[in-house]
Amino acid sequence: MEVPLWLALLVVGYLGIKLFRPPAWLIALLLLGGFLLADSTIAPAINDLMK
C-alpha cells in the first residue's frame, strides 16, 4: 500500500496535536524552524541524511 507523504504527515500531525496537546507557540516554532532549515545552507546535508 502506497500512501502519499503529505497524507501521512497530515495524519501524524493531527494525532500528535490531539494526543499530546502541545502549545500553539511550539507548533508555530517547529513549522517556522523547518521552513527556515529547508532554505539554509545545510539543507543538502539534511537531505542526504534522510535518504
Rank of each mutant, 00 (worst) to 15 (best):
M1H: 08
E2N: 10
V3H: 02
V3C: 13
P4T: 03
P4K: 12
W6E: 15
W6K: 13
L7M: 14
L10V: 04
L10Q: 02
V11T: 04
V11S: 08
G13N: 03
G13M: 01
L15I: 06
L15T: 08
G16L: 09
I17F: 12
I17V: 14
L19M: 13
L19K: 06
L19R: 03
L19A: 09
R21G: 08
P22E: 04
P22A: 00
P22Y: 03
P22H: 06
P23R: 15
P23C: 04
W25G: 10
W25Y: 15
I27W: 07
I27T: 15
A28D: 10
L29I: 09
L29E: 06
L30F: 10
L30W: 01
L30Q: 04
G33Y: 02
G33W: 08
G34D: 00
G34Q: 01
F35C: 05
F35K: 05
L36Q: 03
L36M: 04
L37G: 00
L37C: 02
D39G: 13
D39P: 06
D39F: 09
S40A: 09
T41F: 12
I42Q: 10
I42K: 02
I42C: 00
A43I: 02
P44F: 00
P44Q: 10
I46N: 05
I46W: 08
I46P: 05
N47A: 11
N47W: 01
D48E: 10
D48A: 05
L49W: 05
M50Y: 12
M50W: 12
K51T: 13
